[in-house]
């Protein structure tokens, strides 16, 4: 029987602190996003609010001090702990404990911050590059989205609702500048006025992905989509498959950035060489795996769409 370094491995897998390149499903980020026992009840999965942020869970701000986190944790425990709330509090308390553990330990918190920071940066970067639409007034359930593939650049929408739509002169197509920048009547008129019906009402949640995918430039440094593809022909089906992948891949992606992050912060020169070699290897292998997978899953969709 073989058992090299096994005990160590076990503790590593168990702890969040270690880099886990094993499988996507094991990644801590994945677990953070859905703290579900994977080997057991699906019921839990449904109950859990996906992707609930630890800071939101504890009701503290991102820059809060350990003291505030402790106080918030105690307050919530008094509300949800099974001793007080009964057995129903079990699941929630588990999440609280996990959140508390991560946020109270400096190293874990830093990693966690990087992982969610990365998610924010990921979208905010696109925001600036894309003219990602901003919101006027409160968030609503639906948002406007222009399928730029179909847009013929007729400027009708810009005429009718000039605070909402804008023209991208370089690409010759319309784009949403400010969600609900005009009143609803004007919006209706402008949607109706489009000769090719390329203005769509979409779910707010879908909007960032759609707006991200519609951009034609290829972006560097974002592994999967870095390979120079153009704008997908059918942005909606692409968004669908993108969402699926995002779920799986964010885990790995964040992991990668985490590794990098740790390298910068904690590396001693003595470890550098070994680390660089190992990382190179990891990244090569991972990149090729991801790439193959993405190509397979994603391209298939695109061909289908065509």
């Amino acid at each position: 029987m073989v058992l090299s370094g096994s005990a160590v491995t076990a503790s590593q897998i168990c702890g969040h602190s270690t880099v886990k390149n094993s499988i996507w499903s094991l990644s801590p980020t994945w677990r953070q996003r859905s703290p579900v026992i994977r080997c057991c009840n699906r019921k839990v999965r449904e109950e859990q609010k996906m992707g609930k942020n630890y800071y939101e869970l504890l009701g503290v701000s991102v820059d809060s001090q350990p003291r505030e986190i402790k106080e918030a944790y105690r307050k919530l425990q008094k509300k949800y702990h099974p001793d007080i709330a009964g057995q129903e509090g079990h699941e929630h308390t588990l999440m609280l404990n996990e959140a508390y553990k991560v946020l109270m330990r400096e190293d874990l918190r830093r990693k966690y911050d990087t992982s969610i920071g990365q998610m924010r940066a990921f979208f905010s970067r696109n925001t600036s590059n894309l003219g990602f639409s901003s919101w006027e007034g409160p968030f609503r359930q639906h948002a406007l989205f222009v399928d730029e593939n179909a847009c013929i650049g007729c400027r009708e929408c810009v005429h009718h609702a000039s605070n909402t739509f804008m023209m991208d002169e370089a690409l010759g197509c319309a784009r949403v500048k400010v969600q609900f920048g005009d009143d609803e009547q004007k919006l209706e008129v402008s949607v109706d006025s489009c000769p090719v019906n390329c203005i769509h009402w979409v779910d707010r949640e879908e909007l960032p992905v759609l707006e991200f995918l519609i951009q034609p430039q290829h972006k560097e440094g974002y592994g999967v989509f870095g390979g120079g593809w153009e704008r997908p022909k059918n942005v909606f089906s692409a968004a669908e498959s993108f969402n699926k992948q995002l779920k799986h891949q964010t885990a790995n992606e964040y992991q990668q950035t985490k590794t990098a992050h740790v390298t910068v912060e904690e590396e001693t020169p003595a470890q550098a060489e070994a680390r660089v070699n190992a990382r190179k290897k990891i990244e090569e292998e991972k990149f090729s795996r991801l790439w193959d997978w993405a190509k397979e899953a994603f391209m298939k969709d695109m061909w289908k769409a065509e």
């Binding site: 029987m1 073989v2 058992l3 096994s6 005990a7 076990a10 503790s11 897998i13 168990c14 094993s22 094991l26 026992i37 994977r38 080997c39 099974p82 079990h90 308390t93 588990l94 404990n97 508390y100 553990k101």
Partner: peptide
């Protein structure tokens, strides 16, 4: 696991209630 070794899944001094998992594989 790993022969005669004890592999902790929930370590000592973990806040309760607690839930942890580990992945194992065949030999």
């Amino acid at each position: 696991a790993d022969g005669n070794n004890f592999i902790p899944i929930i370590p000592r001094n973990t806040t309760m209630p607690a839930r942890r998992d580990l992945i194992f594989t065949t030999v």
